[in-house]
C-alpha cells in the first residue's frame, strides 16, 4: 500500500503528508505505529508524530525547524499558526 506520510529523519517529531489527510482518520506509520489525525492536513504539509510541549523543539531533517508556540498534540497539523520560526540559532 502507498505510504500516507513520510518521516525524513529518525529523530523527526513531524512527518510529511503524502496526500490530503482528513480529521478523524487513523493511519499507520511506516513502523506500524498508529496515528490519529486531529485536523485536516493538506498534501505536503507537516503532521506531529508526538505530543510536543509548548516551547519544545519541532524537528525535521533531524534539525530544529522551530519551537511549538503552545502544546502541539500528536496528529495535529504543524505550520505557521503553532510553530515559532524566530531564529534562535538552535
Amino acid at each position: 500500500m502507498a505510504a500516507q506520510v513520510i518521516i525524513i529523519h529518525p529523530q523527526d517529531n513531524v512527518a510529511i503528508a503524502l496526500r490530503d489527510l482528513k480529521k478523524g482518520e487513523e493511519l499507520f506509520l511506516p513502523d506500524g505505529r498508529p496515528l490519529n489525525i486531529s485536523a485536516d492536513i493538506a498534501y505536503s504539509h507537516k503532521v506531529s508524530l508526538e505530543d510536543i510541549p509548548a516551547g519544545a523543539a519541532v524537528i525535521k531533517y533531524g534539525e530544529i525547524i522551530g519551537e511549538a508556540k503552545g502544546p502541539i498534540r500528536k496528529g495535529e497539523w504543524v505550520h505557521k499558526h503553532n510553530l515559532d520560526i524566530e531564529d534562535r540559532k538552535r
Partner: peptide
Amino acid sequence: GGMTSIREKSLGCIV
C-alpha cells in the same frame, strides 16, 4: 507547499 520557514526549505537542499 507546507514549508514554514526558509530554514526548512534550505534543509531540504543541504540534506
